[in-house]
């Protein structure tokens, strides 16, 4: 199908899957922020999620599909673009492009690596068995004590560092991504693009700050 081969088709696929993934991190962020409401917040949230049963698996499959498309074409386009530019200039100069735009594939791969770690850490819970929710006592309302798992994890400076690095990469990634989709989907009319780009960059920074706030505030014991 042309969509999967064409230069524009694949670009549109990147934008659409990217948008869906931004939707995912938006929902994820709202869920995460419930940690600030204490054990009753995040433990209840986790319980609700688990109660969805098979739907969770449907959701996970969709996510897998989105990631697969986004990563496959992202890497493929990157390799094609590398091949199209075999030689570099003696004097390299960027006029308007951003560090974020130039490093999409790298930030993307960092996010992928982080994603695997993150799943092992909080979903499969095998990286830090001593503080994983499965091994902790249930909370007062007989729920898995996700809150304690999260706070204890983020009292570990190394884990916090990993998360911060990953979230910086995520911020950079969506910094370009969120400002691009209007253009890619053909809704830009020129004048509107500047505004969308500016808003996109602000949103990316806001997401980044919010995500980084969680481990950082926990580490600093500002949130207990």
């Amino acid at each position: 199908m042309n969509l999967f081969k064409s230069t524009v088709g694949r670009k549109i696929l990147m934008a659409v899957t990217g948008l869906c993934l931004v939707g995912f991190i938006s929902v994820h962020l709202i869920g995460n922020l419930s940690v600030f409401a204490g054990p009753d917040g995040i433990n209840a949230y986790a319980e609700h999620l688990h109660a969805l049963g098979p739907l969770v698996w449907v959701f996970r499959l969709i996510m897998l599909g989105l990631f697969a498309v986004h990563i496959t074409f992202g890497v493929q386009l990157y390799l094609e673009n590398r091949a199209a530019t075999p030689d570099s200039y003696a004097v390299q100069k960027s006029l308007v492009t951003t560090f974020s735009a130039k490093t999409m594939v790298f930030t993307g791969l960092i996010i992928l690596a982080f994603l695997l770690y993150h799943l092992l850490h909080f979903t499969v819970q095998i990286t830090n068995p001593d503080i994983s929710a499965h091994n902790l006592a249930l909370d007062a309302a007989n729920r898995l004590d996700v809150f304690t798992m999260v706070t204890k994890s983020f009292h570990n400076a190394f884990i916090v560092l990993v998360y911060i690095v990953a979230m910086v990469a995520l911020t950079l990634h969506i910094f370009h991504g969120i400002s691009s989709w209007v253009q890619t989907l053909g809704w830009s009319t020129g004048t509107s693009q500047d505004k969308v780009t500016a808003i996109g960059k602000l949103v990316a920074i806001a997401y980044g700050l919010a995500y980084i706030a969680i481990p950082l505030l926990l580490l600093a014991r500002i949130v207990k």
């Binding site: 230069t7 670009k11 094609e80 673009n81 530019t85 006029l95 308007v96 735009a101």
Partner: peptide, 22 residues
């Protein structure tokens, strides 16, 4: 053998005729 567009917009900035990325 050209590459794919990833919205850098360097093209518009370098264009001597100011062709817009719109």
């Amino acid at each position: 053998g050209f590459g794919n567009c990833t919205n850098h917009y360097e093209c518009e900035a370098a264009c001597p005729k100011g062709i817009s990325v719109k």
